[in-house]
């Protein structure tokens, strides 16, 4: 319980803070909360189960599109959430069955391929507006700040749910199964773990949270197109956030999301042109310098030797 006290304090702050924020600050904070949830979601499959789902953004795009299409057909926003989840889970199960048999980089690349294939299909789908994308009905409210606060809280609810799920995972038989799978799949099989089922479940849970975030995102931004919501760079950002914070921990992904999104935001506002260059450089440096995450770097006191050691371990 003790280690959850500081996060709880942060949560209280997150809940009461919106009225004190400018529109700009609220937008940044919303983006941070959104990415924190996406990262917590990818952590389930990539962190705990060790399956690097490089194409996890596919569920984000699906959620966004299901909500957009249904709302364009007169459905209320909340009514679109269940279909959004169901679509993502069905897809995770159907695609997961063959794709999760692959290991390591083959799975990573295959999931990326799935993502791009789905993007190309949506690009040709009339009902989804094809390459032009879809516009969603605007959320009505007394003023923009009220509207944006509403979306902020929606994202925050999903974030809290994903954190609660991960805490449960840590102390649960399911979580133990996933961790065993990550370390040694044959060993896990011999321990009586139904690995195909567990991997598919892990991906499905990951899909649920990712799709929910996608649904809210579509309504928030109110315009989506395939290139944006299926952009592989979103997956990679989730991955880097997870790495920076520390994979297969409850709060690591959140720390990573805060750090990277804040850096990205500062860079984005100051140097719009070189945004991608800085992001690319951060990604490369993260892999080289802190492959085990920030938390690992600072446990037991920071030292430069640790950085050098990280490089030495992986260099040739």
């Amino acid at each position: 319980m003790k280690k959850h006290i500081i996060p709880l304090i942060f949560l209280v702050i997150l809940i009461i803070i919106p009225p004190f924020l400018s529109g700009y600050m609220l937008r940044i904070l919303t983006a941070v909360v959104m990415f924190a949830t996406l990262t917590e979601a990818i952590n389930i499959i990539a962190g705990y189960a060790g399956y690097p789902a490089f194409g996890n953004v596919v569920f984000f795009g699906m959620g966004a599109y299901v909500t957009a299409i249904l709302m364009n057909h007169g459905f209320g926003f909340y009514l679109t959430l269940i279909p959004s989840i169901v679509t993502a889970v069905l897809f995770a199960v159907v695609i997961g069955f063959p794709v999760l048999r692959l290991r390591g980089h083959y799975f990573a690349i295959a999931s990326l391929g799935v993502n791009v294939a789905v993007m190309e299909i949506v690009n040709n789908l009339k009902i989804a507006g094809a390459a032009e994308g879809l516009t969603l009905p605007l959320k009505k409210g007394a003023n923009p700040h009220v509207v944006y606060t509403y979306f902020y809280y929606l994202f925050l609810v999903v974030l809290v749910l994903s954190v609660i799920f991960t805490i449960w995972l840590e102390k649960n038989r399911f979580g133990f199964g996933l961790r065993a799978i990550r370390v040694d799949e044959d060993g896990a099989l011999a321990m009586g773990i139904n690995t195909p089922l567990y991997k598919t479940l892990a991906w499905s849970y990951s899909a649920v949270f990712t799709a929910l975030v996608g649904s809210i995102y579509a309504y928030w931004i109110s315009y989506i197109d395939p290139e944006t919501v299926f952009d592989p760079i979103i997956s990679v950002k989730m991955f880097v956030m997870m790495l920076i914070g520390g994979a297969s921990t409850v709060y690591g992904p959140l720390i990573g999301a805060v750090l990277l999104e804040l850096i990205a935001e500062v860079v984005w506002s100051k140097f719009v042109n070189i945004h991608g260059i800085v992001l690319g450089a951060i990604i490369i440096l993260t892999v080289i310098l802190i492959p085990k995450g920030f938390l690992d770097l600072f446990t037991g006191g920071f030292s430069w030797r640790r950085l050098v050691q990280n490089i030495k371990e992986n260099m040739i």
Binding site: V287, E313, N314, M315, I316
Partner: peptide
């Protein structure tokens, strides 16, 4: 500098 790290 990172060639021996995990493939992903």
């Amino acid at each position: 500098l990172a060639i021996k790290a995990d493939v992903f």
